[in-house]
Design a protein around this nucleic acid. Structure first.
Length: 424
RNA sequence: GGAUCCGUAGCGAAAUUGGUUAUCGCGCCUCCCUGUCACGGAGGAGACUGCCGGUUCGAGUCCGGUCGGGUCCGCCA
């Protein structure tokens, strides 16, 4: 008999069917036994007689009659006639999966990833992540961008600095891409609007709940902009659509975290960073340290301000100072045409207008002390004209972390890489 | 890299100012139970308290070292 997916059971009342899935729990009450079985589409309770041999964790095939029964959660249950073990679980599970809350330390959660992911609440994170990725792709295409994939093994650094993983590449030295920055920019000269969903690697030894050393960046770059507000407006619209998709398609997963998504504003305010410093000083009596653009405490308060004053989870901070932005960022006096997008008080995207005139780029590199050597392919592209452009890089896992208020971004990465962890 | 905290059964936690046999919940094993859904009931196994050394009559608890980890900062998405 053909396998019936559990989500379809309500359409097969009083029919004899076969389901396949994993036993999550068994409750034995004398002569009657209840099996809680899940497949990737849902969960069902199977009633069986006491002489079954299957156990929690086993993967089974069950043939039986679907009955409507008010006593069962979901209103339907299966009278299991034949229970066949497809694959036996041969070692006791290290923790319980049938409780509503899995309650594990982060290390246990990650060390036993394949098991902890079976828990609906843990799995919901990645179901939502799937919706996010799909939504970003769809929305970007709708907005006239084409998807590109750029190399992750690079012959030279793309932004200078020492935060690159070095790899051996045959007879040469190579590094892992820390961003698709150069490639997406020069592709604006070809396709006008491009986006990429791809891995980026940061060899930064950070110990925080918002960093990992490999993550998936949602990048975009767009041409023929008039000023950098074209970029924030575009990103605004995209974030709004993504949140609508997540809200529409991810309801059952959001419910597990008691999350209500507020509508994203048509126009998320853009506030100059210098202005935000003053606001935070006046409103919250906190002074963002002078030797930084903005610190985590400052971001948190900016998020608080966004929520309290303009009722928005999102806010753009713009015109970051020249010294804190990379050489390709369009300057604006002592400031730049660069912005960050904050979501619930955490930076989730960085973007800005880029320099697109060759001479300006060379001058800015000199000013920043960035050598041209090794980046000729990038710099020389500007000799052949690239339109005014800009874009962003957005941390996909950070969106999920903030969406669900997760304690750590590592919960939003299937197999996170941090300073201490490269296995599993 | 700096600061700070932690390490106790498979998992999550508890142990008065150092004091006898290290406690509880979940899970696991055995038995009972025909409507459970965090099933219930009875019983049982499972820990040299990360490791090494020290102080003490006595160390899970104090000290030193070591290994492992968390959090915050820096940096960033």
């Amino acid at each position: 008999m053909e396998r019936l997916l559990i989500k379809e059971i309500s359409n097969h009342e009083n029919e004899n069917v076969v389901i396949k899935g994993r036993i999550f729990n068994i409750r034995k009450l004398g002569n009657i036994v209840f099996l809680i079985i899940r497949d990737y589409t849902g969960v069902i309770q199977v009633v069986a007689s006491k002489d079954i041999e299957a156990n929690s964790g086993d993967i089974v095939s069950v043939e039986g009659l679907i009955k409507k029964d008010e006593r069962a959660k979901g209103g339907y249950e299966m009278k299991g006639n034949k229970i066949e073990i497809i694959t036996k679980n041969i070692e006791t599970l290290p923790f319980d999966l049938e409780k509503d809350d899995i309650n594990l330390n982060l290390n246990t959660l990650l060390d036993y990833r394949t098991i902890s992911l079976r828990h609906p609440r843990v799995q919901a994170i990645f179901r939502l992540y799937d919706i996010l990725l799909k939504s970003y792709e769809n929305v970007m295409r709708d907005e006239g961008f084409i998807e590109i994939k750029t190399p992750k093994i690079l012959g030279s650094a793309s932004e200078g600095g020492a935060n690159f993983f070095k790899v051996d590449y045959f007879e040469k030295k190579a590094v892992l891409a820390q961003s698709p920055q150069f490639y997406k920019q020069i592709m604006v000269g070809v396709f006008e609007n491009v986006f990429e969903i791809g891995s980026v690697f940061r060899a930064e030894p950070h110990y925080t709940t918002r960093h990992v050393n490999e993550y998936i960046s949602l990048d975009a770059e767009m041409g023929y902009i008039d000023d950098f507000y074209d970029i924030t407006k575009k990103l605004n619209r995209i974030v709004k659509k993504i949140m609508e998709d997540i809200k529409r398609e991810g309801g059952e997963y959001l419910k597990l975290y008691n999350i209500e998504i507020d509508d994203v504003l048509e126009e998320i305010p853009c506030i100059k960073l210098s202005e935000m410093r003053k606001i935070i000083k006046e409103k919250y009596d906190y002074e963002i340290p002078k030797e930084t653009d903005i610190d985590p405490k400052g971001e948190e308060l900016a998020g608080k301000y966004a929520k309290e004053v303009i009722n928005s989870d999102f806010i753009f901070l713009t015109h970051y100072p020249f010294e804190y932005r990379p050489f390709y960022t369009m300057p604006d006096g002592e400031e730049t045409c660069g912005f960050d997008l904050l979501y619930k008080g955490l930076e989730i995207a960085t973007g800005g207008q880029r320099i697109n005139e060759y001479d300006d780029l060379i001058n800015n590199m000199k000013k920043k002390g960035v050598p041209v050597e090794g980046m000729e392919f990038y710099v020389n592209s500007f000799k052949h004209a690239i339109p005014p452009h800009g874009g962003w890089g957005m941390g996909s896992e950070r969106i999920i972390k903030q969406l669900l208020n997760l304690d750590s971004i590592k919960e939003a990465v299937l197999f996170p890489r941090d300073v201490k962890r490269i296995i599993p």
